[in-house]
Amino acid sequence: MKIGIITFWSSKDNYGQLLQLFALQTFLKELGHEPFLIRYGFWKDDLISKLFKEYFLLPWRIPRAIKNKITERKVYKSNIVHERKFADFLSENILYTEQVYSTKELIQNPPAADCYITGSDQVWGALNPNPIFFLQFGSKESKRFSFAASFGDGNSFLKDRYIYKITSYLKGFDMVTVRDYKALEICKKAGINGCVLFPDPTLLIDMSNYNSLLSSNPGTDKYCLVYMLEEEQKTKIDMDDIAAFVKSIGIKMIYVASQGRFDKYIKQYPTIPQFLSYVKNADFVITNSFHGTVFSIMYHRKFAVIPKKGGNNTRVDTLLSQYGLQKHIAKKLPMIIAAYNDIVDWNLVDDINQKKKKETVALLKKVIGEE
């Protein structure tokens, strides 16, 4: 079966974005299907219309939009200077459409597929629900479902007005699966009572698939990998305290930052294979990233995840609760120390993953069949 995937794919510094796409394609291929990424370029849409809808009608968003644009420009310049070769990874490991589609182009002339998938990642996190990420295109005969989709964290706008907009979209799906408990609640409000909690695709493929990507071992010295996203003030523990902790345990710090994380500390800018190697060989991982947490678990690394301020951190809470690893959420510095000293039964974690994979495969076969 030909399966067209709609998800985020254009980042130059978000490792989880491309790794979840790699995992989803790998997982579907293992089931005998022919998945491909539909390169949706929402930036090709009419800018004036977009600005009107997002800012003129909602003027309270303008200050935040200006701040975000300044940060985006800074990130853009940084990614030019510190090239992480994400485009190379995409071309070497992902099947995708030659064309990059605007919304209008995708609705008028979509690539043919027997099935369309939206997700994983925070594909439903926009203030105004984007019909493309709700699969409002393509033949009516094609199957449609979401794969571990997420609405994102801390989106207070998910109220009745938003629910009303997405209800008609979701009712056209053959199956709705989401990544966290918050998304389950939202879908139930939209009348989708058959919504299912699905594992992120990065948890569903064998580690040999990731290991085949790995670059060389970063060295023999012990180190703590610190992988942080976004501005420092958005997380509950600052970098000075993290750096002091790493120094106190007598190992070096390898610091990888993405998506607008700028501070005084020396950073590394690895490719995706190098990033995986950093996680695999780390003595300890400190992160505020969902996928940083996922790969710490997959590689059986000791880890601590720092929650965001003001967000409900649903994705990480949902993930860790399924493994009984909630004590690895570190809201204060002593909790990082506790996470570092915790002994995890990784065999139990692997058993849970295998059970989730079997359940997921069985449900997918029921909905889209097996080639």
Rank of each mutant, 00 (worst) to 15 (best):
Y278M: 09
K366Y: 06
K182C: 01
E185F: 04
K140H: 13
V246P: 02
R261Q: 10
S212P: 00
L325T: 04
D317W: 03
T271C: 07
E359C: 03
A257D: 04
W9P: 04
I286L: 08
T220C: 08
Y76W: 15
Q322T: 06
L37Q: 07
L90N: 05
P307I: 04
K104F: 12
N288D: 11
E72S: 14
F36S: 06
H33S: 05
Q136D: 14
E231C: 03
D153M: 06
K280Y: 05
P110Y: 13
L51E: 12
K159C: 07
I70H: 12
C115Y: 00
L363G: 00
E72P: 00
D153K: 01
K267W: 05
V178M: 06
V316M: 09
T177Y: 03
K308V: 04
P131H: 11
S168M: 04
Y323I: 01
E54Q: 13
V75C: 12
L319D: 10
R161C: 03
K77F: 12
C187L: 03
P131M: 11
E34L: 09
F52W: 12
R179N: 07
K357S: 02
Q268R: 13
G250I: 05
M228P: 03
V361L: 02
C195V: 15
S216C: 12
N347K: 08
T220R: 14
K332W: 01
F145Q: 01
I62M: 10
D13Y: 03
T235K: 15
Y96N: 10
L214T: 09
G16M: 02
H300R: 14
N130C: 14
V316S: 08
H291F: 11
I254H: 09
V100W: 10
P59I: 01
I306V: 15
